[in-house]
């Protein structure tokens, strides 16, 4: 009796094992897609925040109606993904810039593709300085490289961070919750207050900080488009002296 059970058991186990014999013959994702987002007004990489803007890709060789994948744009304005399946992709950079065209890219091996985009807003004359033992002052002005058809401008804000990554996604949350550290512009470009050179007035914030800390500071402004991401100034490092 026992023998029968044992032999049945062995046969069943053999069946289980045999069902696993097929070898997955599909290559792992090993293609590499990388590139830069170039600001057409400066010719340099766009000033971005870590992971806010993105390069969106759709693998068209796989399905007629594929779901999207996102490659985040890094703070230095580059993007990089080394684990993509080889195939044909539709690619579009999405973020704080005028909508870019979707392009079709064959990805296999290492593919580099740079996108040149025009930001909605450029922030210039950025100044950040320590004005007292416990406060700093930041200011900047904004300009619109393309004024016609520019979506309504939402707001301008300073961003403070205690590490090198600084922006809306990487800032000290405390400052976001305080109305005084955000200027709601909420107007179209023609209604924005301007100086004689046709660019915006100076937006200035005085911000309380803790003595003895090192802050990374920048400012950002955004418009009411699909994504509502910020255009940024460069990042300035401020050391607040210990008193």
């Amino acid at each position: 009796m026992k023998k029968i059970f044992y032999s049945l058991f062995v046969c069943a186990s053999a069946l289980f094992v045999s069902s696993c014999m097929e070898i997955d013959n599909f290559d792992g994702p090993d293609s590499h897609f990388t590139g830069r987002i170039i600001d057409s007004t400066t010719g340099k990489n766009i000033l971005a925040d870590q992971g806010e803007c993105r390069v969106r890709i759709w693998e068209k060789s796989y399905s007629l109606n594929p779901g999207e994948q996102n490659i985040p744009v890094k703070q230095d304005g580059t993007f990089n993904n080394t684990k993509l399946f080889k195939g044909t992709y539709d690619v579009v950079p999405e973020g704080a810039w005028w909508p870019a065209d979707t392009v079709r890219v064959g990805i296999g091996g290492k593919v580099t593709k740079d996108f040149t985009v025009t930001p909605y807003l450029t922030l210039f004359d950025f100044k950040a300085e320590v004005v007292a033992a416990d406060s700093i002052k930041v200011s900047c002005r904004i300009d619109a490289p393309v004024a016609e058809g520019l979506p309504r401008i939402n707001d301008i804000r300073p961003f403070l961070s205690l590490e090198q990554f600084c922006g809306a996604a990487n800032c000290i949350g405390y400052y976001s919750s305080i109305a005084a550290y955000k200027k709601n512009i909420n107007a179209t470009w023609d209604k924005v207050k301007k100086l004689d050179d046709g660019k915006s007035e100076v937006y200035e914030f005085k911000i309380y900080v803790k003595p003895g800390y090192t802050y990374f500071v920048r400012m950002g402004a955004r418009v009411k488009d699909t994504f509502e991401k910020y255009n940024y100034t460069e990042i300035v490092k401020l050391e607040i002296p210990q008193n």
Binding site: S63, L64, N65, G67, E68, T226
Partner: peptide
């Protein structure tokens, strides 16, 4: 819903996501 798109590829996704 993603599950419906996989059953029916004619369903176009909404924008803004």
């Amino acid at each position: 819903p993603g599950g419906e798109i996989s059953k029916n590829p004619n369903i176009i996704r909404n924008d803004g996501y």
